[in-house]
Design a protein around this nucleic acid. Structure first.
Lengths: 219, 219, 219, 219
DNA sequence: GCCTAACCGAGACGGTACGTCCGGTCTTTTT
DNA sequence: AAAAAGACCGGACGTACCGTCTCGGTTAGGC
């Protein structure tokens, strides 16, 4: 991995000392990081991962390829950070909804995600899948960047439901937290249909809540 | 799509009179189709979709590039048919297990899939994901080829369980049939962990069977 | 060399026994030979040797590639015979002009060559040069086919001039016979200017006749 | 024609301000031009124009195909410049021989051309002929590059002979300057025999000098 | 009149070169 | 020293074409 993948390296280099070789010289323009990543997202959404070229990104960001590769060591690397940049407003773990029922919480979590971004989200997931398919070694990174926060939110919400005895005591919180992301990925990537409210309701009422032993007369 | 993608075009050209250019000329050697697709699978499993080159495929199949591109218009196109060729022995819808319980059926279905093919299966799914990511237009094709038969098998087995009153009457057979493939995809592609018996058992006992209202003392 | 190159193989296989394997079988359609060679000339004149493909020839001649390659073993081979077919009406050694003076003979020889064919002739020479450049081994053949008859005509005409004491006794008939073809090739191929009457007159009056010791007051 | 064919474009763009895109960017490495052309010559001499591939050239020059095609748009284009590079030491117009007689000058000019390069020269002419045959539009370029300097040398030497009254006053210097190159081309390309001293002497004594009215007792 | 081998047009085949494109690196000039 | 610009190597892509082979069908002899 390259030094630049800061956004997703949540575990690495807490020491901020980047081994400055000398001291003099022009400072790296941090504004370029953002410009490049945003160009990456835009183009990836427009043409997809495979058709996107590094030259396109550099041109869109009005950057040279040198500036790009000084920050990320490969196209895949850039996409990972771009994806991480995107997800930051998808789920806010510090302000999860708390409506009193798991069903209410889940619907509120969904509503918080801006609807107009769905198309973008789907294409981003597809790009991420492409990266994962060709760079298995960075799977953890991609996973951490995009999907894990969502799973973590589910983990918390389901955990609460178990804690307040809304759900069965012996529920496998870990496995069940993955149900909605998994089925959402299947719907988006394989079936190519929208991850909308109707779909979410179906999964909730027919799969997740029953599996948690929450009877349907409860809602 | 190219004319050659016959394996997955289950819906297309039932009309047997396809313009009839002349009639003359050497016939397409259908043996080459197979040789090329098998070479594609072999190499894709060995080196992955991205590192696989069309020249490798042609060389392995002892074919010229002309013969390859006469059949499929791109690498992605070839992989789709290769995947379709592969799946044919993954699930045999005409000989589904029938053990008397849904849990038994599901485990038997899993066992029927040769264990040594798991790695191949995972890599193939990853290749398929890469293709889908770059060719959204052909998603249906890929879906039909690889995942749908598996979902269909689940649909049948779960339907039987409902029919014999093993499962809740109001179960959403459609949604529930997708649970195992979806979570399997999540585990293989995102988590990069094996889809093994332990995982399957977990999903069955903690998600699918509870969601169907089948109590755990039943097994 | 292939069996089919009959037109130019003036020296080869006097034995007519072509090793008939059996005896039966359909006779080769000699009309196809001609159609193919004429198509070859047409296309070569239209697009040049390099841009001409064997498929073009076959299509133009309404022939299959099999029929083509049954007769000639390569594109170069075909061009040689096509060229030979062409030259047959360029110079008729049995009916050379005889005007009484070498100058008159030469001009008459030129006039006998249809003017409208000059462009074709030039392109043919260019094609022949291309063949020679890539197939040095067949140089003799090409030489014999196209240029040698012309040189031979000059040899006869100059020989007569020497015999009737119009020209110097010690003249090198061989070398001088090559002067006009050589300089014509230079003009056509290198200078890309027409081999026309003005040019011929210049070469005759300024090079060939002076070299033969024929004074200019003689014409 | 491509921008890169500088060696032979003696007439083009004397204006040194060719639009000036920006100024930035890495400079063309002129060393690569030379390396590629030299590789072209080497390989062309070794295997001939037709058998030479662009990949061979790139590999020999340790260049990428991008660098090659950035400079020349086709194989034919490259050969033209390679030929132009070659000819520069064939004839040195600034140091022509001056022996007092045309015959002596011509023999000295021949001797100045290193004998060991003859084979190379012949193959180069053949390659050039192949290029000309397929790219008539660039004939002038090829002509200027390789043949014209030789004709020019003859023009000067014959001009001197006329000036000092060695040759007939009314001699057509232009036409006669082409005699030796023309007949040399005929001998090399059509007859496939060596352009050696014996041949040159023959042409000189039997064609050129007689045509100039220089009697044979003069040498 | 029938058999059969060789022909025919059409076009697929293996192989190979072409010219284009792009990833990741390096160089030049400017800031 | 970092910036934009863009040339560099390497190598895959998809196209085109050569010379061979196969297909179904036709056309002569020889019987």
């Amino acid at each position: 991995m390259h030094e630049g993948s800061r956004l997703v390296n949540t575990t690495a280099d807490p020491a901020p000392t980047p081994i400055r070789k000398r001291s003099g010289g022009r400072k790296r323009d941090t504004g370029r990081d953002d410009a490049i990543l945003r160009a990456t997202i835009e183009i990836m959404v427009e043409v997809g991962f495979e058709s996107m070229t590094v030259d396109m990104i550099a041109a869109r960001a009005r950057a040279g390829k040198g500036a790009v590769y000084r920050r990320w060591s490969s196209k895949a690397d850039m996409v990972l950070d771009a994806v991480a940049l995107m997800k930051r407003d998808l789920v806010d773990l510090d302000h999860l909804p708390d409506t009193g029922t798991l069903r209410g919480d889940m619907l509120a979590l969904f509503a918080a995600r801006a609807t107009e971004r769905d198309e973008q989200f789907t294409r981003t997931i597809a790009a991420l899948a492409a990266v994962l398919a060709q760079q298995p070694g960075i799977a953890d990174t991609g996973h951490a960047a995009l999907i894990e926060p969502w799973v973590e939110a589910n983990r918390i919400l389901i955990g609460r439901a178990v804690a307040r005895s809304e759900a069965t005591a012996g529920a496998d919180v870990e496995a069940l937290s993955q149900v909605i992301p998994s089925m959402g990925g299947y719907r988006s990537l394989i079936q190519r249909q929208p991850f909308d409210l109707a779909f979410l309701t179906g999964v909730l009422d027919k799969v997740l809540l029953p599996a948690l032993g929450i009877p349907d007369h409860a809602y």
